[in-house]
Nucleic acid binder design. Structure first.
Length: 585
RNA sequence: GUCCUCGUAGUUCAGUAGGAUAGAACGUCGGAUUCCUAAUCCGAAGGUCGCAGGUUCGAAUCCUGCCGAGGACACCA
């Protein structure tokens, strides 16, 4: 399958190279900025004219004079030298037919093994909205790369080995000094069943964490407990395993509800054994050095125009850091997973950290194409990080529950409740709530902060997830009534194509270029914008051109096939975004 | 202090090969339902693209300075 823009670009490129001897980078075709004049356009004459110091309009004339006579595209020159392309209706229809009968792949990523690092929740801490962006964006990119033909591996990269573990151990010791986990002389196995629940941990953690800030002796105790855990004290390890078990089972439920899944549930603890050998390797190769007792890697380069602190691999007390674990993780991903690329979906604030890490990796001779997809904060209407009305951190579960409850109310009040069973109503409401949440996030450039106004997104109107779902649901309902033969999928050009249908066709054939563009920038908002525009084009078509009552049978068939393809295309977009299409709404 | 990101309609955001009339959603105002789901559609009003210079035939886009917001900066993650 060849997207139209690529088809046109190929012709352009051939002309440019044979008649103008310029490199192919000039052969770019884009969607027209003036839909009233054209479908696609190229600005290459303007750009090239500058370089060749000639008149852009004359250059455009020369250029299209070489356009192959058998290509039916209608070409015009406008303004200072824009070259405009208008496709024939037949071209649109056959492009769509071709698109339907072939599978999309992106040559750059097809057959690559790509590791995605996202989610990154911490054991024993409740998931809050801060984890939402990483999870939603990461999941979306993973699905996109998979759709484009890559072999993807999603790793949650659990925070399970830091100081918070020592804090929890000390906290529990204070509450239950009699538990066998704290008794150094305890002989025999520890209880199989966890004596604590996740709820216990979630209340304990903020308390002990706050207490440590006040009390430096307590903080020191926690540090020691962490160290003992890391050195393998059996009672602590047994207790720690309970933390992991209760946390993971809760996380699995939450991620499952969100539609986010991982292939690996690896945590930082996985690399514990590998950290000292890793430091030794860096030292052995003289990449690392000792400075003030700590082992560091200098990663500054002469070309830097900003301060670039060294990476600290090992603290002077012998402890390891985030950086050490991250490097060990990279090593495994390259050596064992044979990763061709690693994509990190992590908070923007960690940009410097990852730049340091990858410089260190380069210095030791690991050459991994890596991509840091940094995302901004999710802010409340006040422009500050999103909080509950009471001012606390909002738990993910509460957020989803709120949205679901609103959706449910809407289903009941708007007389849209199709005699739903309680179960179907709940499920539909949840699908709608999640669609609103995900689309609100993904429609924004991930790099930027965005403002999440819960009241606004609970209205479910306009540029929202539910709008896209609604369009899909209407098509589904329409197709069900039409009793369409679904084995056949191709469209046959009718004697005349209504304007709204032509516009819809144009949006449908953009699918491959939209996917490619989204991949190129790792920006789901590009895909979301296109999906929204497709749904808009459909809604317009739906209002202007009644399908089922169409009397011209060829035109009716054409319209139905168009609806069918719109549904399929919309579903491709929504599947990547992670939005379910309800049966009814 | 140094560096990074950002400043576009009343609001939230799109908009990088420098290019045609700066787009969308919400909100406001006006209209559409004997007809496939009105969570829909159509129309209107609304902009000195933070400010000031510069480069260019042409700048929201590139350069410089200033103002404003957020963030990062060696033993936390």
């Amino acid at each position: 399958m060849q997207p139209v823009n690529i088809h046109l670009a190929n012709i352009l490129q051939k002309i440019l190279s044979t008649h103008f001897e310029v490199d192919h980078s000039f052969a770019q075709i884009q969607k027209s900025d003036r839909p009233d004049l054209a479908d696609y356009q190229t600005n290459c004459a303007l750009v090239l004219a500058k370089q060749l110091k000639t008149n852009p309009r004359a250059l455009a004339e020369q250029l299209i004079a070489h356009w192959p006579k058998d290509d039916p595209t209608h070409i015009t020159i406008a303004g200072p030298g824009f070259i405009n392309f208008k496709l024939t209706d037949q071209q649109l229809v056959s492009t769509l037919n071709q698109q339907v009968s072939s599978t999309f792949t992106n040559q750059e990523v097809a057959n690559q093994t790509i590791v995605f690092d996202y989610g990154g929740p911490n054991v024993a801490k409740p998931m809050h909205v801060g984890h939402l962006r990483s999870s939603i964006i990461g999941e979306c990119l993973k699905r996109l790369y998979q759709f484009a033909g890559a072999k993807v591996i999603a790793d949650i990269h659990l925070g399970d080995w830091g100081t918070q573990m020592g804090m929890l151990i000390v906290g529990l010791h204070q509450q239950h000094p009699d538990w066998p986990y704290f008794n150094q002389n305890h002989i025999g196995p520890y209880p199989q069943q966890s004596p604590i629940t996740l709820a216990d941990l979630e209340t304990l953690y903020p308390k002990i964490s706050a207490a440590c800030k006040e009390d430096s002796d307590l903080a020191e105790k926690c540090r020691i407990a962490t160290q003992e855990l890391q050195q393998g004290r059996p009672g602590y390890l047994a207790l720690w395993q309970h933390f992991i078990d209760v946390s993971i089972s809760a996380m699995k439920k939450e991620f499952n509800r969100l539609g986010v899944s991982f292939d690996c549930w690896f945590g930082e603890s996985r690399y514990q054994e590998k950290l000292q050998p890793l430091v030794d390797l860096f030292r052995g190769k003289k990449v690392a050095e000792i400075c003030d007792g700590a082992t560091i890697v200098e990663v500054e380069e002469p070309s830097d125009n900003k301060p670039m602190p060294p990476v600290i691999l090992q603290k002077k007390d012998g402890g390891f850091l985030y950086a050490t674990t991250d490097l060990a993780t990279i090593d495994e991903r390259i050596q064992d997973f044979k990763a061709d690329q690693i994509i990190y979906v992590v908070d923007n604030r960690q940009a410097l950290h990852f730049e340091q890490i990858f410089r260190a990796a380069e210095k030791i001779g690991w050459h991994v194409p890596w991509t840091f997809v940094g995302f901004g904060t999710m802010n409340g209407p006040d422009g500050k990080p999103f909080k509950t009305r009471a001012g606390g951190v909002m738990k993910l579960k509460d957020l989803i529950d709120t949205l679901t409850a609103t959706a449910k109310e809407r289903l009941l009040n708007a007389e849209r409740d199709h005699n739903f069973s309680d179960q179907e109503r709940q499920q539909t409401a949840e699908q709608i709530g999640l669609a609103a949440l995900k689309f609100a996030d993904l429609q924004h450039d991930p790099k930027q902060n965005y403002q999440f106004d819960i009241d606004k997104f609970m209205r479910f109107e306009g540029k929202t997830g539910p709008y896209l779902q609604y369009a899909a649901v209407r098509i589904k309902s329409l197709l069900a009534k039409a009793d369409l033969n679904t084995e056949k999928t191709s469209l046959q050009l009718p004697s005349s194509v209504p304007n709204a249908a032509r516009d819809l066709l144009l949006h449908l054939i953009r699918l491959p270029e939209v996917l490619n563009e989204t991949l190129k920038h790792n920006s789901p908002n590009i895909l979301c914008e296109a999906a929204f525009q497709l749904a808009q084009a459909f809604s317009r078509f739906y209002n202007e051109a009644p399908v089922l009552t169409e009397t011209d049978s060829a035109l009716k068939e054409f319209k139905l096939r168009l609806c069918q393809q719109t549904y399929k295309t919309l579903k491709v977009y929504l599947d990547i975004i992670g939005i379910d299409i309800p049966a009814r709404m």
